[in-house]
């Protein structure tokens, strides 16, 4: 099954967020939801990841951090969080929620529950 049909079949679950180019490379944008803020990241290689916008350390807004490789450095105290897993990079320990994302024809989709 191609990703495209996946989007169609799960129509009401995949949420259209915006265009890929609306997110800066090595940057992030915020999606405000009833369940809290979600940070959507774009890497140098145009991969897209979504994390709960709360750092596992003291809740810092990860969407405001510096993005590099597959990581983001939290703006408050510089913990580094992995974009794929939401895990803090050792020696720090902690985890923040991740969300599935999909990019179709330059449009970014997000699924809020997994």
């Amino acid at each position: 099954m191609t990703a495209n049909t996946a989007v169609n079949e799960m129509d009401n679950e995949w949420l259209e967020v915006g265009r890929l180019e609306d997110i800066p490379r090595l940057g992030s944008r915020l999606v405000r939801t009833s369940k809290g803020d979600v940070a959507v990241f774009r890497t140098a290689g145009d991969e897209v990841f979504a994390l709960n916008d709360r750092c596992p350390h003291k809740g810092g807004p990860l969407s405001q951090g510096i993005v590099f490789d597959h990581k983001v450095a939290c703006p408050l105290h510089n913990w580094c969080i992995e974009l794929q897993t939401g895990c803090a990079i050792a020696p720090d320990e902690g985890y923040t929620g991740t969300y599935p994302v999909n990019v179709e024809n330059g449009v970014v989709f997000l699924k809020l529950e997994d």
């Binding site: 609306d22 999606v31 405000r32």
Partner: peptide, 11 residues
């Protein structure tokens, strides 16, 4: 401008 507004608001 992208820095100051969420890309999307739901619910």
């Amino acid at each position: 401008a992208h820095e100051f507004v969420p890309i999307k608001q739901v619910g």
